[in-house]
Amino acid sequence: MASLPPIDLPPGATGAGAFDAQAAETDGGVLFDHLLRLGDDSLILGQRLGEWTGHAPSVEVDLSLANIALDLIGQATHFLNYAGEIEGKGRDGDALAFHRDVLDFRNCWLVEQPNGDFAQTMARQLLFSTWQKSLFEALKGSADRTISAVAEKAVKEVSYHQELAAEWVIRLGDGTDESRRRMQDGLDWMWRFVPELFDMDEATAFLAARGIGADVAALRADYDRRIDAVLAEATLDRPRDQRPILGGRRGHHSEHLGHLLCTMQFLPRTYPDATW
């Protein structure tokens, strides 16, 4: 990714826009923001995968995708409940999931990308789960005991997600002409969202230095090795690096996230007292 030139800003420009989220000013604020990132990644991808329910290529694949979705939503519940505790304003995981607007979400761009066809969904899953597995392996050693406990449980789930996605990427890549073309297209679509996963912004560096967060930049070399191994077996080409797309961690999102939230948040916002 480092091969791309940075964007030159004109003199006097800060690179920050009117919709940029303010950087957290307290340690608790940084931790809250970090927990939103962890929780929102899992929540949004879980919701995306849930869209396949009833539409997957077979009933077995339907269940595979729903199982992954439920694992992810379970992780989100832990991280967002804890985020609510750290924030101390009486919000729980549900309040954070269903009563925040799009600019307040801190997930990466990769997870909010549309499902596309099954190949595109599997490309996203491989690229995300491979990263999330390394992340949680690192977070198992977090100085924050809640984060380390959730990571320890979740890493087993995510290992399975990564293996399943790799199996499908290999079969579709090394399959028919059509499956190969679709798999390559799916990878090409998702590839530009990978650099964001390894972006060390100030908050990430702050928490990594305190042993609470992970040094995500350090995970990149291992990630590339793992992805390359799968692509080699799938006989797929590693996509060309494009200009990275960043900003999800600061509240900038693609147009897709708002639509996803409409569906996800509609019911609890319209019927706040609904239970089931």
């Binding site: 077979s58 077995e60 694949v61 269940l63 595979s64 199982n67 399943l164 199996e167 079969r171």
Partner: peptide
């Protein structure tokens, strides 16, 4: 029973369908 293209995917489908 499950449908699957090969043994490895059959195991995964069995896991996802019958041991969840």
């Amino acid at each position: 029973s499950v449908h699957a293209p090969d043994p490895e995917i059959a195991l995964r489908h069995a896991r996802d369908t019958y041991t969840r």
